[in-house]
């Protein structure tokens, strides 16, 4: 078991328009990418974000060794309750997700 934060990977979170966040997890090598594909669960992302799993789109891009997740913003960008206009801090939530 390890947290993503311990795996020497880079996690980037960005807005994809005002209503969607997209998070790219860049793996340093193939072994790490394979490990994430196998044991990094979308359900764990769903619980970290407080979203139903069905609302998370997942892509595994082998040529770039990237796992990408896109999901609706908890609140619309820039609306009264938004805390992070550019959505970049969602990456922090991913750091603490564990994989086998």
């Amino acid at each position: 078991m390890a947290q993503l934060a311990d795996l020497n990977l880079r996690i980037r979170s960005k807005n994809a328009g005002p209503f969607t966040i997209t998070v790219d997890i860049f793996c340093p090598d193939q072994a790490c990418f394979d490990r994430l594909c196998k044991s990094f669960r979308t359900s764990a992302v769903a619980s970290a974000l407080g979203l139903p799993e069905s609302e998370i789109r997942r892509f595994e891009i082998e040529s770039l060794r990237v796992v990408k997740l896109s999901f609706p913003r908890p609140v619309v960008q820039g609306s009264r309750l938004d805390r992070d206009i550019h959505g970049a801090q969602f990456a922090v939530l991913f750091e603490h997700i564990t994989v086998q």
């Binding site: 960005k14 969607t20 997209t22 892509f59 040529s63 770039l64 990237v66 896109s70």
Partner: peptide, 15 residues
């Protein structure tokens, strides 16, 4: 790599 990675950037669907 730098060129193909740009499809990820601020894009919900990389393809």
């Amino acid at each position: 790599e730098t060129v193909s990675a740009h499809m990820l950037y601020e894009n919900a669907d990389p393809f």
